[in-house]
Design a protein around this nucleic acid. Structure first.
Lengths: 202, 202
DNA sequence: TGAATCTGCGTACAATGGTACATACTTTAT
DNA sequence: ATAAAGTATGTACCATTGTACGCAGATTCA
């Protein structure tokens, strides 16, 4: 078995990065082999060589997005132990220091929509969301985790639609506080109705 | 000035409906003149005649979507006067009888993403959201209304991603309950920090 | 060295896209 | 009736797309 070595081992990675740049700035529908090649500064043949078909290229790009997003946003949440820490971490992840950039939100939205038609991307998306829920469940019951996840996504989405209109951190904080509190209250009372309903006995 | 009368006055409407059907089932990127013409059962020239360019057609389609969505989802909320009514209405709008269908959610998502690149569609979207907030503000302070709006969108989005996994109504209810309650609590105490912060003095 | 194999790239092709436009049909005003 | 204006459609053109494929270096093994 003879093996050739690539002259530019970074080329594949550069193509993937370029793909994400194109998707972020012009949308998945604009992500063509040629457009991506231009963005990456490589010839067309180079993109078709590394990725047999366009779908594969796009799925790979979203996978690298997932792998890049995950550690960045999951880590701060994982470290939060106290309730107040959790709320702090949630606020920060929504509109604070650890919040995703508008570009990241766009990418996430593009992935979301593309995933509606591409099973492979849907899989990547579910991975990402499952990971996120897993982290939240370390500090919150399942139902609350889901609500918090939905609320955060809603706010990110809002930010994307109103780029010039920053969220009111006080408002964001009280909302998370309220959601986290219902969990605490119910758990203290041993009340298993409502929020903790769908928690499997782990 | 002589005026001609259209042979088929429903044609324009039919094209718009067809456009929404295509967008819902295959995405905006698949919404071409030809594809829409086939869906509507009209010749290609008919679509280009009624809509000078594709962007106009798509924007018009989204406008009809907005006009159709608005009354359906706003009315039940408008009628809710008591706090419990509000929560009931929110739960129903999220995953109950007045909740949007998966198709509607898809359409909404497509509009959202297309709006990221099309100012005209972004305008339509903001209209829709502003209307929604307006209705919520009849029963809730501004901050709470925003949080509720974000949360609902997050859950719709979740439903679209997990079509076979219905939301737990109990969980949904407690979450809304908690958000609505912080508003009530603070207002009773005359505490204007946090949630009511950004409410303009109306 | 030389043949085999892999890496990398430019070109070509069939399909599909938006849109321009010439043509035909309807209605209205005189 | 007839000309003008508006309605409606089929065809054609050019740009862009994904992909197939042949060709050139590079690398490896004998």
């Amino acid at each position: 078995m003879r093996k050739g070595k690539p002259n530019d081992p970074e080329r594949r990675t550069r193509i993937l990065r370029a793909a994400l740049e194109v998707i972020a700035s012009e949308g998945v529908h604009a992500a063509s082999y040629r457009r991506i090649a231009v963005q990456a500064g490589v010839p067309l043949g180079s993109t078709t060589y590394y990725f047999a078909d366009l779908e594969t290229l796009i799925v790979s790009a979203f996978e690298t997005l997932r792998d890049g997003l995950e550690p960045r946003y999951a880590a701060p949440m994982r470290d939060a132990r106290l309730d107040t820490d959790v709320v702090d971490a949630l606020v920060a992840a929504t509109c604070g220091s650890t919040a995703p950039t508008l570009t990241d939100i766009r990418l996430y939205e593009e992935m979301h929509l593309y995933g509606a038609r591409s099973p492979r991307v849907a899989e990547v998306l579910r991975d990402l969301q499952e990971e996120s829920l897993m982290v939240l469940r370390r500090s919150l019951p399942d139902g609350t985790a889901r609500a918090v996840d939905a609320l955060m996504w809603g706010w990110w989405s809002y930010r994307a639609l109103h780029p010039g209109d920053p969220l009111d951190q006080g408002m964001v904080r009280s909302a998370y506080r309220a959601l986290v509190d219902i969990a605490v209250t119910r758990m203290e009372r041993g009340d298993r109705r409502g929020v903790a309903e769908s928690t499997p006995g782990v």
